[in-house]
């Protein structure tokens, strides 16, 4: 019954496939990808021109912080995907619990970032410590801003979900939020090795 509802409605069908969430969200995700693609080009041009700065810079960053943030992003993304799938099965209460879990884990990201930056500043590492750190702060701060929009989005969707705003037939808002959070997760999965793995 629930599966039929998912098949017949709750999906925006287009000629060639479905749009998870809504078109507006995918316009936003496309813009987000373009923005980060430009920032990645800046990173690679800087890396090609200053290989030593990138070699030495990465060794001064906390690999533990990078790994913790990656695991937080991946886990919150997983929880939010579970929230969507349980909603499709008609398990509304479970879906809300998964979303709360996704929010709690996602909130760990700004906390981990705060601790990382505090540790950096204590070591005298700021945005003017060289080309590597300028690019590092610019890219990671930008990602943090995008993640903050996502966390606010999770809060909004959670409020709507708690008041019965979504059903098996119509949970586009939940799927749109999930799509944005997964896209932000993909961006972090690219950023992580750039600064924390490739020393």
């Amino acid at each position: 019954m629930a599966a039929e509802a998912v098949l017949e409605s709750g999906i925006e069908t287009e000629a060639g496939g479905r749009i998870p969430g809504n078109k507006g969200m995918w316009v936003g995700i496309t813009c987000e990808f373009v923005e980060f693609a430009v920032l990645f080009i800046v990173y690679f041009v800087a890396r090609a021109n200053f290989p030593d700065a990138f070699q030495n810079g990465a060794e001064r960053l906390s690999r533990v912080s990078g790994t913790v943030i990656t695991l937080l992003m991946v886990t919150s993304s997983f929880f939010i995907a579970c929230s969507v799938n349980t909603m499709r099965s008609g398990k509304r209460r479970q879906s809300i619990y998964w979303l709360v879990a996704g929010l709690v884990v996602a909130l760990g990201y700004p906390i981990a970032k705060y601790l990382e930056i505090s540790s950096n500043l204590a070591q005298g590492i700021n945005g003017e410590s060289g080309i590597f750190f300028t690019v590092y702060y610019y890219l990671t701060f930008n990602h943090l801003v995008h993640a903050t929009w996502g966390i606010l989005g999770i809060l909004w969707v959670l409020v709507r979900h708690s008041f019965g705003g979504y059903s098996v037939e119509d949970h586009h808002g939940l799927e749109a939020l999930a799509s944005y959070w997964h896209a932000t997760d993909i961006i972090w999965l690219i950023i992580f090795p750039m600064f924390y793995v490739l020393a």
């Binding site: 060639g16 496939g17 997964h182 993909i186 999965l189």
Partner: peptide, 16 residues
């Protein structure tokens, strides 16, 4: 992430 979380195989060709 794209294939299993976003289910990109089911999406519109532009998104894919």
């Amino acid at each position: 992430v794209a294939r299993y979380f976003i289910e990109s195989d089911l999406t519109h060709p532009f998104i894919r």
